[in-house]
Amino acid sequence: MALPRWFPVARKEAVTLFKSKAIWTLAPLLVVWGYGPTYESWDVLGPNVTVGFVQVAGSVLLPLGVLLLTYRSIIEERTSGSLKFLLGLPLTRTDILVGKVCGRSVGAVVPFALSTVVLGTIGGVKFGLFSPLRFIGVFLVTVLYIVVLVSVATAASAVTTSAVRVTGALFGGFFLLLTLGWKRIGVGIYSAVTGNAVNPFDPPADGLLFAILRVSPGRAYRTVTNWILGVGNSGGQYTSVIDVLYRGVSTNEYVVDAAFSGQAVPVYLHESLGLVILLFWGVVPLVLAGYRFKRGDLA
C-alpha cells in the first residue's frame, strides 16, 4: 500500500522537532513535573500511584510544551516563504494541514513517551508493579490529548496572519482561560447563566455546572484519566480528587461523586464522554481553520 501523499510533509515536521533542543529539554522536565508521590495517594492507589504521575506530567507542562512546539508551524513558513515549497507540491491544502498535525504530533509524543518510560521505571522500582493496563490507558489518552493540542495549535497557526496574534489567542485564550483557569471561568459562566452562586467547597448537585467545567480540554483529559485510574468522577488532578473523596478534606475541587452523593448522576456526566470532548477539540477547530486555509491567499 502506498503511503499517503502528505507523509513526507509529516516526516519533515517530525524531523524538524527531533532536531530542535526543545523536545529533548521537555522530556526531563516532564519527569520532574510528574513525579510527586504522596502518602494519601499511596494509601488509596498503592502501586498505581505511578499511573497518577503520568496524569500530572500531562496536565500543565505538557500542554504548554506541545503548544510551544506547534504554534508557529504554519505562520512561520508563511512569513519566511518556505510555505511556497509545500504549496508547490502535489498536495491539497488539507493534505498540508494533516501532514503538519501528524508530524508535529509524533515529534511531541516522543518526549512525553520517554518521560513516561522513566516515570514508570522509577515508580515501578519504588512503589511496586502497577496495573499495566491502567498505565497504558492513561498513556494512550495522553497521546490523544497531545494530538488534540497539536491540532488546535495548527488550526490557530493556519488562520492567523501574524505570529503575535496566534501567540495571544493560543496562550492567552486557549491555554490560560480554557486550560489553566477554566475552573474559575466555568463556574462564573454557570453562575451568570443560572443566577446561582456556587460555594466551591460545597458545590450544588447540578449537572450543568459539571458539564460546563468539563468543556475544558484539560479537564476532559483528567476526567478520562481519573476514570482509568479509578479515583472518581472529576476533572481535577487525581490527588485533589483523593483528598475530597477519601480523606474528607474540604477543597475547592469539583468532584461529581461528592456533589451528587446518594443522588442519580446525569448520564452526560459519564467519564467516557471526556473522550468525546477531546475529539471535539481535536476536530472542530481544525476543520474550521481548514475551511479558511483552503480559500485564503497564502503568499
Binding site: R5, F7, P8, V9, R11, K12, V15, T16, K19, S20, F85, L89, P90, L91
Partner: peptide, 15 residues
C-alpha cells in the same frame, strides 16, 4: 535545520 538532502527528499517523495 534540514539538510539539502532532506529538502530534496521532501519533494521527491511527495511527487
Amino acid at each position: 535545520s534540514l539538510s539539502a538532502r532532506r529538502h530534496l527528499e521532501l519533494v521527491i517523495d511527495t511527487k
